[in-house]
Simulated assay, not measured.
Amino acid sequence: MEDMYSILDAIRPGMTGGVLATVIRVDGSAYKKEGAAMFFKPDGTRIGLLSAGCLEEDLAARIENGFGRKPETIVYDMRRDDDLSWGTGSGCNGAVHVYVEPVGRRYAAHLLRLKTFLQSGTAVTGIKFPDSGAYLFVTEDGHRFGSYQGEMGFVHYLPVKNGTFFLPVMQEEVYIHHYRPKPRFILFGAGKDAAPLAALAAKTGFSVIVSDWRPGLCSRQNFPDAEELVVGFPSEVFAESRITIAPNDFVMIMTHHFSRDQEILTHVMQTNPRYLGVLGSMKRTKRLLGMEKLPPGIRTPAGLAIAAEGPEEIAVSIIAECIKLKNEPVSEEVLL
């Protein structure tokens, strides 16, 4: 899950006094990898996580004593097991490089702009320059903003992975992080077994949309973590474009109503989403489509095969399957 989603929600216009800490490099193994982030709000509240709890207290104490008033990096070496090292009892066996930046009004404004682009469905690449303390954001459609004022030609040759890289054209090490909009998890069906699924999807970094024709079920009371509730029959929802399925969407069908599931599945199949799950047996799904052999890409029964029982365990199996698909490595190509 992207820590930055939660951090961006905590940024306010004109904010000053906050500190953003980011893991920019890991040598060896660690609980969290490059991109893990934590925001220390001016009142001391923390958002995000850098480790399994090994580093946060020390970093918080350093920040209270003035660390982070300017951009700087601290290395926590957990590869040793003596009493003076960070390896004691952690089991991580790695060195974690944490880059710390003060968040003033200008940086807060740029972070809010980053949030706006992500909410609009636009991917953004963030570049940090630890040597100078500068930063730059570049959207997939070419908008650029940040404190960096140097030559920009290098942005066309950035690797697609997150991490710290030496760029020959810059003769400098930079940290690169590709921020992508939250993947959408579209849940058709608002029964009692859908509630734990929607809640877990939201907690693991998905933007959740729940749709059902029954307003008594499709309610904020039942789905407090959903970003959108769409009440209406499938024919209405699709005809009025109240829900449009995109190639990167994750779709789950579980209305427990045969004809409604049939209508939804027939429509969604034509849109080719990233994930298409149907609750129930393969035999039932074949009946929904009137086919002896299902088209590729339909997950039925949905979820990883962990012998799940009950709504909560089934939710875990489905979201685990979605996370596995979401986190598949991307190809080695230039993003911008």
Rank of each mutant, 00 (worst) to 15 (best):
G126T: 07
K70W: 05
T125E: 08
G66C: 08
V124K: 11
E101L: 05
A108H: 11
D131E: 14
F117V: 00
V103W: 13
P102R: 04
R79T: 06
K70P: 00
K128P: 00
G53N: 04
P42I: 02
G48I: 13
R46Q: 14
L59G: 13
I47L: 15
Q119N: 15
A123E: 06
G133H: 08
T45E: 14
D43Q: 06
R105V: 15
A61L: 12
E72I: 03
L114D: 11
L84K: 06
S90H: 05
T122E: 14
V98Y: 05
G126R: 01
G91R: 05
V103H: 12
E56Y: 06
R144Y: 00
L55Q: 13
G66M: 04
G126L: 07
I63G: 12
Y135Q: 14
M78Q: 05
G142A: 05
I74S: 09
H110S: 06
I127L: 15
V98S: 11
V75W: 05
L50P: 13
Y99N: 09
L84Q: 08
S147F: 05
A109I: 01
R105E: 15
L55I: 15
G66K: 11
V103E: 12
V75Q: 09
L112T: 12
T116R: 14
V103Y: 14
G87T: 07
E64Y: 03
D77A: 05
G142F: 11
I63E: 12
C54I: 09
Y148E: 07
G91V: 06
C92W: 05
R69A: 08
A108F: 13
L84Y: 03
Y99S: 09
C54S: 14
F145K: 01
E140D: 13
V98M: 10
G150Y: 06
L136F: 02
S51F: 09
V124A: 02
S120T: 12
L118V: 08
R69K: 11
T122S: 04
K41V: 01
G126P: 00
H97F: 15
F137T: 00
L59F: 13
F137P: 11
Q149C: 03
F40D: 02
L114C: 05
A52I: 02
V103K: 10
I47T: 14
R105C: 10
G87F: 06
P71W: 13
G121L: 10
P42Q: 01
G48T: 07
I74M: 12
G53Y: 03
K115V: 00
Q119I: 03
F67E: 13
G48K: 09
L49E: 10
L118C: 08
D131C: 04
L114H: 04
G142I: 02
K115Q: 12
N65R: 15
I74N: 03
Y76L: 02
D58W: 10
Y135S: 15
C54P: 11
G126C: 09
